[in-house]
Design a protein around this nucleic acid. Structure first.
Ligand SMILES: [Zn+2]
Ligand SMILES: [Zn+2]
Ligand SMILES: [Zn+2]
Ligand SMILES: [Zn+2]
Lengths: 428, 428
DNA sequence: GTTGGTTCATTGGGTTCA
DNA sequence: TGAACCCAATGAACCAAC
């Protein structure tokens, strides 16, 4: 074994040597764990004592400058980490990817974790757990603490050649010109894009593994470049910009395509037919007796007793401005109470009539009637305004520039404004 | 059917009423089907989900949301709302939109803004410090006194594997390479950063628990190291420095992004108007009798009786260097006591006058006057300096390169330095 | 399917302050 | 001292183009 680094490394290497002799584990080789023999049964899950023992050896030397490499030989501190222990769990029993099987018992990975930590906690007053009775007093054959840096591959897919060149994690493909995992891919992109520069706290020779790759960014980036990841493969912000535009364009095209007029299915045609028929049949003209107050409203409108619109606001397409102008005028000129009442009466009658027509319309649609009554109400509440809009579209008389309600009633822009004025003066 | 204006608005009931009448249903209440079985089971579910496992997780919540302090502040007054204070600044002095310049020193608008928001948080904290939780000394039934060292886990959270390797308290994650609680995390950092060395009063074999971990720091630290906490994981002061810079940069970028020019609402415009008017009305030029000692100061300045600035420091944009240079000179050349007194008198008069003007300014803002008196004082204390900065931005005369105070007083870079010198020699 | 970029919940550094 | 916080970094999962 080479010992070229400083004294720091010598201690580590020495330890490395000792460790390798006493343990048939070679954490540098992720696949060697297959041949790892099961631990002695009585070692159980007591990582604590194991850890203590090893650390006593390791740290008798120079503690302050041990490189993160030594994590390779102390995976114990990490094994209980959720995500990693999961893969560890799979390593125990590849077939039982969702848990650990022991005869008739199956332990989920969560339960395994729980079990492991339980041995660390001495007799806690535990709150009832479902699986507690099965776990607490049972002695399990000890399971060798898994190497968090070992990569596990599914049996059925031959992805074993896919190993991240940086950290030995499972690679997901070639990224920026090298076979890497998702983590190293993201790390490299971030590092390059943000033009980061790191510095190693040790001696620039950190051995990057899956579990310690976060510890030294400098060496991780160095390794990235070393295995051939290319900064040219990272898009510049300009490229990203244009790519985003392309994506946007494509997306719009796609949605537009979805709207391309197409031949309706027979079912759709039938539905359309039903709706149109229903619509046409729910346009019975209102009788004069239904919309009361009509005469007064009509008289007011024809007698020019309408709000004087400044030409400005009249032509303005800004509805809000118009409303404001009117509102300011409002209080000044208020029609008589009689007239007021007639206007409001007329308005509410219109509303009632209109909503009735909408209901009539809906009730001619079989699908609607098939709904639960509450759903019918909900739909009507939500859609009534929209239907009225559509209907207004249909009943608008472009010649008279007025909304019509049967042959007897029509409402111009001016009568609406007048109505608005009356209404406002009424509620103020 | 006569309807009052009020009932017109109740479209819901109108609709329900009508629907009922026009629906061939014998149900009196259209909501009768609404009477779903009362939701007892739902309640239990809600209860459970409310006290979800998030309770135990430290890092909850939306990170992007502003701090509760900010939120606390906003409703109280929107005078100094972040983005508005800047626009206000621009409005004050459109020419200086790129920042506040004082001779060679430049405070960018970003920095100004950051400064302002910082002080707002300060002010807020002092304003809203009234809510103390009152449930500290809850009395538990004394039937089963809980073991203080037992770790308690929620039923529904699977965090039971998280046990502090040092004290057996509940761990919050991996800290410095080992699974520890918040307490041991902080303890380790403090110990390492301050390079502490402890000694055990017993025999270096204290068993560390949650309840006694404070008793023996030596053994606690030993245990920390024993379980694998690494001193290298504690950032050096350099690293902290650069990280702070990064955070600052990001913060500025973020606020800059939030400044995307947008159309102001009418309310905002009005507010701006109010502030600008108040500002302009609180700029009454000071009378010569108010700022005493002015003649002597002026004479000193014109007679070249000013600190000799080395060209180096004069051109340096590093304020700190400048101060240092001056300070070293300071003791050597001290003006007469008479002159000193005049300078100091003048300076204190300026301060008093300026603060009076700030108060005048604030008192012209209705929202400010609507605040509780203590809040007014807190805001003034916290924001006075910033307002003075903004004001200096406005009163700076770029031709004479001087800050002006009405037509009679102006202060160049040199007079500031002179004043600084006198002041320092006075207080030393 | 491969490989760019993006998203966002999670992690673990430091900081604050009662 | 440590609970509660802030925030950059991380990486699994995802989307889109080829
Ligand atoms: Zn990797
Ligand atoms: Zn390194
Ligand atoms: Zn602890
Ligand atoms: Zn001790």
């Amino acid at each position: 074994m080479m010992m070229t680094a400083g004294s720091v490394m010598k201690v580590d290497s020495l330890y490395n040597h000792m460790y390798q002799r006493s343990t048939p584990t070679n954490s540098d080789n992720p696949h060697s764990q297959d041949s790892k023999p099961a631990c002695e049964p009585d070692m159980s899950f007591n990582f604590k004592s194991q850890r203590g023992h090893k650390d006593n050896i390791v740290y008798t030397g120079d503690q302050s400058s041990s490189s993160p490499e030594d994590q390779d030989f102390m995976p114990k501190t990490n094994i209980l980490k959720k995500d990693e222990s999961l893969s560890a769990c799979r390593a125990f029993h590849p077939a039982a990817s969702d848990g650990f099987r022991l005869g008739p018992f199956t332990l989920s990975s969560m339960e395994l974790q729980d079990l492991a930590s339980r041995s660390l906690v001495k007799a806690t007053t535990s709150i009832g757990r479902n699986h507690q009775s099965t776990c607490d007093n049972k002695v399990f054959p000890s399971i060798d603490p898994p190497d968090p840096d070992s990569v596990f591959f599914d049996d059925d897919s031959d992805d074993s050649w896919k190993v991240c060149g940086v950290c030995n994690d499972k690679a997901t493909g070639y990224h920026f010109n090298a076979l890497t995992c998702e983590g190293c891919k993201g790390f490299f992109r971030r590092s390059i894009k943000n033009d980061k520069s790191f510095s190693c706290q040790y001696n620039n020779k950190c051995n990057i593994t899956k579990s310690n790759r976060r510890q030294c960014q400098a060496c991780r980036l160095r390794k990235c470049i070393q295995i051939g990841m290319k900064r040219e493969c990272i898009m510049s912000s300009d490229q990203i910009e244009s790519k985003k535009n392309l994506v946007l364009t494509n997306r719009m095209k796609r949605t537009a395509q979805a709207w391309v007029p197409r031949e309706l299915s027979q079912e759709e045609k039938d539905l359309l037919d039903t709706i149109c028929t229903a619509f046409l049949q729910s346009n019975s003209p209102p009788d004069k007796s239904i919309l009361r107050g009509g005469e007064i409203v009509e008289k007011d409108a024809s007698s020019g007793n309408s709000p004087s619109l400044s030409p400005n606001s009249s032509n303005s397409s800004n509805f809000l401005d118009l409303i404001k102008t009117l509102s300011s005028d409002m209080v000044a000129r208020t029609p008589s109470n009689m007239t007021n009442a007639a206007h409001v009466l007329h308005f509410t009658d219109i509303m009632e009539y209109s909503i009735r027509e909408v209901i009539k319309f809906c009730k001619k649609i079989p699908t609607f009637l098939g709904l639960d009554l509450n759903d019918q109400i909900a739909l009507l509440k939500a859609g009534c305004t929209e239907i009225l809009f559509l209907k207004a579209n249909y009943t608008y008389d472009s010649e008279r520039k007025a909304l019509t309600l049967g042959p007897d009633f029509y409402y111009t822009r001016e009568s609406f404004l007048q109505g608005w004025q009356v209404f406002c003066s009424y509620i103020i």
